[in-house]
Nucleic acid binder design. Structure first.
Lengths: 139, 139
DNA sequence: ATCCTAGCTTAGACTGTGTCTAAACAAAGA
DNA sequence: TCTTTGTTTAGACACAGTCTAAGCTAGGAT
């Protein structure tokens, strides 16, 4: 049973068969898929599923606050089902591998008041880039 | 005289009239333009400038390490001429306004060793999101 | 059970952003 | 001047994502 589906249901959001397949596909992997990758995998379980439904559904899950939308490379967006845990991302510049990581404190604490320009801060995210163990040895 | 042009020249990179106009357009503003915005403004000074040259030139300046490419919203990339100063970004979720900010320490210090998964860290960037003073009062 | 309505899904057209290609052009050195 | 190398150009192309109009489905009202 998908935990994401449970969270989505709490919003009184109809869980149609299509939406269930999409949510389970997203959550079933430990990497963060693009919309096309979600479509590709979800279609294996529901061949008539359309591209538009995948895009619509991902956008709605983001709007509900249960999925994070990551725009990290300027190519395609990636979707992260762990919106309920504060975390950040570590990306390999060689192969694109992405891992969730946790910092020792809230990044907002490192932004002094005179650097806030009167903004109210809602959220902060840190992106770390480097080379994963595989890409260090075989560049 | 554009400081970015000076930095670019150090790479033995030919400063053609087109490249100069593009670099000066980028640096002349305190906001971070998209490629299309650079084109739009640069064309006012050099009407025959082509779109391809703007994209090529921006990509080359990024490859030289003198301009940062920001992929923050999944729509278009933005280009930041201040690649020589370590800084981060504060974005208004209302109007999209983006400001450069400085943290009190290196974000890499906040990622403990057991969260690095064997990666070598090259760079870190923090994105703060919230509402700017204008958008707080007039949402 | 049937009908109605609201919302969901679909295929495909469309848009925006960026890349590629082939040809014309410019500059520097022999 | 001629050649070589690198730059610029217009337009075709590719990819990611959105929109539209039509059909479909589920659930409530009768």
């Amino acid at each position: 049973m998908s935990d994401l589906v449970t969270r989505l249901r709490r919003h009184n959001w109809r869980i149609t068969p299509q939406r269930r397949v999409i949510a389970e596909t997203l959550e079933g992997s430990h990497v963060h898929f693009t919309a096309e990758q979600v479509l590709e995998r979800a279609v294996e379980r529901m061949p008539e599923l359309s591209r538009a439904t995948v895009y619509n559904t991902l956008n709605e899950m983001v709007a509900l606050g249960e999925v994070l939308e990551l725009a990290l490379d300027g190519r395609s967006k990636r979707y992260d089902p762990n919106a309920d845990h504060e975390h950040h991302h570590l990306i390999c510049e060689g192969c694109g591998l992405m891992k969730d990581v946790h910092t020792v404190a809230d990044p907002a604490d490192w932004l002094p008041g005179d650097e806030r320009h009167g903004f109210t801060l809602a959220r902060s995210s840190v992106t770390y880039r480097g080379l994963c163990p595989d890409c260090q040895t075989a560049p």
